[in-house]
Design a protein around this nucleic acid. Structure first.
Lengths: 184, 184
DNA sequence: GTCTATACGAAGATAGAC
DNA sequence: GTCTATCTTCGTATAGAC
């Protein structure tokens, strides 16, 4: 009941794939369900049969990065605090570079995220990892600086093509090293 | 022909005032012309008589911060490079704190800014000041870190009410001091 | 000069035929 | 599962009252 590729699955995947491309190129709000449907070769109603609204399409687009974040968080949570911080920073930068294409979409919807319960868990996990990168929740200044670093990093991940993955990684590493200090 | 407060001026100001409140509370794209008109006590068409579209309303909302940015830029441009950097950082943080309320709106529209010529100058001036904060255009790494810092700062200016202006200023000062180094 | 009334195309979303 | 037809609301535009 699992490994067979149904028509349903193929259509779904095509919609997600085309939506991801359009969201990255034109932005989330500038991309209509009609655009997605046309690119995927189906009708608007078909998109809404597979996904419970435009936000659900976005949730599907973000799912791989969500899963990656959850995996990093689970791994880091089992380490002692001092070690966890360094590993979290390294893993987070790698994650941001890997999914840099969809990060601009995340930035765009952030102001209106409150009314999108689809993304509450994604945002929550992001905050959890941010606290770990700050070396724990005790030093409020370091937590704030970690949030500052995350915002800077997300902003830098936009502008696709301006930088190679290697260059982006180097820049983010430098910035986070300057910003985040281990607790003394 | 100048100092008299016409009905026109009063209506215009009311529209801008209400639009600012709604943009900050609900986001730019989630705020309709109808919402603005109702809050301002007039009709949708009246809003469009005074402003040439929704983007023009936003431009009016952002005008004070735009003017502040232009003033800082003009002032800093006349200083020698080494001194300009420090002054630019100080002034930019103060500017961000002063206009923290509208910054989330700026962040929201950034992905679609290309199709909004109304804001080309605002964005351009922001980039100019960023380069100055980096200590000049020569060291690409420092320029990138300055952009990184600006993104982090803009992100922190959201969440109204979480921090006082003083706390926000202290945080941004610390972050920019850690991130940006004077050229050696 | 300032506003109300009305109309148009496109958006997200739903109902129902096949 | 996929479609056409339809609904509501959006941003935008214009005609015309005062």
């Amino acid at each position: 009941m699992a490994a067979t590729t149904t028509v349903r699955d193929r259509t779904r995947r095509e919609i997600v794939q085309q939506a991801m491309t359009l969201f990255q190129r034109d932005g989330y709000s500038a991309t209509s369900l009609q655009h997605i449907a046309t690119a995927a070769g189906c009708s608007k109603a078909t998109v809404l049969y597979h996904f419970n609204g435009k936000a659900a399409v976005l949730a599907a687009v973000l799912e791989p990065s969500h899963a990656g974040l959850a995996e990093v968080l689970a791994e880091v949570s089992q380490l002692p605090a001092a070690e966890a911080q360094q590993v979290a920073i390294k893993r987070f930068v790698a994650l941001a570079v890997e999914f840099r294409g969809v990060i601009s979409v995340l930035q765009e919807i952030l102001p209106t995220i409150e009314e999108m319960p689809e993304f509450a868990d994604l945002i929550g996990k992001g905050i959890e990892l941010t606290v770990i990168m700050a070396g724990g929740p005790d030093d409020q200044l370091e937590v704030d600086l970690a949030k500052f670093a995350v915002n800077g990093l997300l902003g830098e991940c936009r502008h696709p093509g301006e930088r190679t993955d290697t260059e982006l990684q180097a820049l983010c590493d430098t910035a986070l090293q300057r910003l985040l200090r281990p607790p003394s």
